[in-house]
């Protein structure tokens, strides 16, 4: 057979097959990666906490524990720290913290609260003003680590404004009557959030703060000047 000069590069079939291959194979890789990721981001349970297993998305029962966001030397960025810090940014899973007066929510109770909160976050369209894990709209603050926000903490203006003595009660109160607590010209609308839903939402926020987001947002609440309470300015 004589060899003749052919141009594969201008051949339709070559590109069609290449496109099919690239598309198919990239899809397969994505599916493989998805299975791998699914395993890593599945939600943990109380047993993981008892066994000190670090989960990217921990059990809903983290609402029973103290939560922080500290620099972890091994990970190289800030991570959520659950139940106390060992000094290197690792969770001790020990130190409890009352959540609406209790720190003994069972797996079932905690799951139900988180479920209610997640449903409420969708039913009230939170994502069309706020960002969750950085996704959503840019009209209102990011809620990824809202639970850890100094403004809601002991000496924060938000907590003081609602007249409540704990972070969770202050948040729940605000969520139910945002119109009563104007902080800026841009106010949260009244969405008819019931007291129960508010508790669920706060549980959802506390749980979200314990998700390991690879260090996002950077330096959250750690930068002193980041807490410039509007009143003092």
């Amino acid at each position: 057979m004589s060899r003749k000069k052919v141009s594969v590069w201008s051949d339709n079939r070559f590109w069609q097959r290449s496109a099919t291959w690239v598309t198919g194979f990239a899809s397969l890789l994505l599916i493989w990666l998805t299975f791998d990721t699914m395993g890593q981001i599945s939600m943990g349970n109380q047993k993981d906490i008892d066994n000190h297993v670090v989960k990217r998305v921990p059990s809903a029962t983290v609402i029973n524990y103290k939560v922080e966001y500290n620099m972890n030397n091994h990970r190289g960025h800030e991570v959520p720290v659950i139940g106390g810090d060992d000094g290197k940014g690792n969770s001790l899973f020990k130190v409890k913290e009352k959540f609406f007066g209790r720190d003994d929510y069972s797996q079932k109770e905690a799951d139900a609260l988180l479920h209610l909160g997640k449903l409420a976050s969708q039913a009230k369209n939170c994502m069309d003003c706020h960002t969750l894990l950085g996704n959503g709209a840019y009209y209102a603050p990011d809620l990824t680590k809202a639970w850890l926000d100094p403004a809601w903490g002991k000496n924060g203006p938000m907590q003081a404004m609602t007249g409540k003595s704990t972070k969770e009660e202050a948040m729940a109160e605000f969520l139910q009557h945002p119109g009563k607590y104007p902080t800026h010209a841009r106010m949260m609308p009244n969405l008819g959030i019931t007291p129960k839903e508010a508790v669920g939402l706060v549980a959802f926020l506390k749980h979200m703060a314990t998700i390991d987001t690879n260090g996002f947002p950077r330096g959250f609440g750690k930068i002193k000047e980041g807490v410039v309470y509007a009143k003092t300015k």
């Binding site: 057979m1 060899r3 003749k4 052919v6 141009s7 594969v8 051949d11 079939r13 070559f14 097959r17 290449s18 291959w21 690239v22 194979f25 990239a26 890789l29």
Partner: peptide, 23 residues
């Protein structure tokens, strides 16, 4: 690694198509 996996088999497609066109 991933790019190699995607691109390398295109050589095989290339030579296969070349053979087909030549014949």
């Amino acid at each position: 690694f991933l790019h190699l996996l995607v691109v390398l088999p295109m050589f095989w497609i290339y030579f296969q198509e070349k053979k087909r066109l030549e014949s």
